[in-house]
Design a protein around this nucleic acid. Sequence first.
DNA 1: CCACATTTGACAACATGTTGTCAAATGACT
DNA 2: AGTCATTTGACAACATGTTGTCAAATGTGG
Lengths: 141, 141
Amino acid sequence: MLTEVFLETFKLNGLLITAGDQLVKELNLTSARWKVLGALSQSGNSMTVPEIARTMGQSRQAVQRLANEMTNDGLLEPVANPNHQKAKLICITDKGQDIYKKVMDKQVPWANTIAHEIKEADLESVVSTLKFLNRYLGHSS
Amino acid sequence: MLTEVFLETFKLNGLLITAGDQLVKELNLTSARWKVLGALSQSGNSMTVPEIARTMGQSRQAVQRLANEMTNDGLLEPVANPNHQKAKLICITDKGQDIYKKVMDKQVPWANTIAHEIKEADLESVVSTLKFLNRYLGHSS
DNA sequence: CCACATTTGACAACATGTTGTCAAATGACT
DNA sequence: AGTCATTTGACAACATGTTGTCAAATGTGG
């Protein structure tokens, strides 16, 4: 049955990326960049690239490229890190905040429409189980 | 909370691909090809490329490329489709069956180790909720 | 303080995914 | 049958992801 969870996760990932790309297209965003903004936003707005990568379950190189491009586009900005000379802290710019807010204004009602069709207990079960799997797989590697 | 489900899904997807790649590396497979074999295997061993793509929640072009490469590698073979001249039915070759079996021999114990740490009710909750989300997102697009 | 492992940014090679386009095959409707 | 929308394989452009490597910065243990 866990195998089924994995297959459904792969599928959901694909469908979410497609749906997400459609949702944020007109804001000149993509799902990948949205995810970076989300990770930063969720954690107080300032992390190094490798920290973002670990949060997202991806390689630091993938996030590094996104961060560089988004910095060029004025969505992010690197600020000096008192704890590390090379590893700058990545922050969201005002422009980035603005766009992220607009994304959330579109995403929240969309998510609520879906969430209404799912029992709250199931949602909690899913969140905690996925978190457990992420913790488990994250530590093992 | 549904937003959290989505973020955890993205993360789990990344970690699963990494873990899967490690698991099947020595069999000259990758997670992507494994998924194609799994989709075919789960559905009686014969589907057209677009059918596989819909099962996996991906674009038919992505699956087409994988299918072409795996055909060149002797894992798959296209057979005539009585219902469609162009859209061949993709089948797993004996060699493909062999490798898939070896993958499962490695994956099943690995999955069981993890599954033991999760309550069965939670697992059922996750599977049915993910399936619902996939059905919902699949129909809407 | 010094050697050594780890982390980090930068860069490259490559796998995997999306979208868009085209012509051929199919299906649906009159 | 004839027309038109849809599906399909092929191909291309591009976004996103992995791994591997290197040198610099950091952490760790003597």
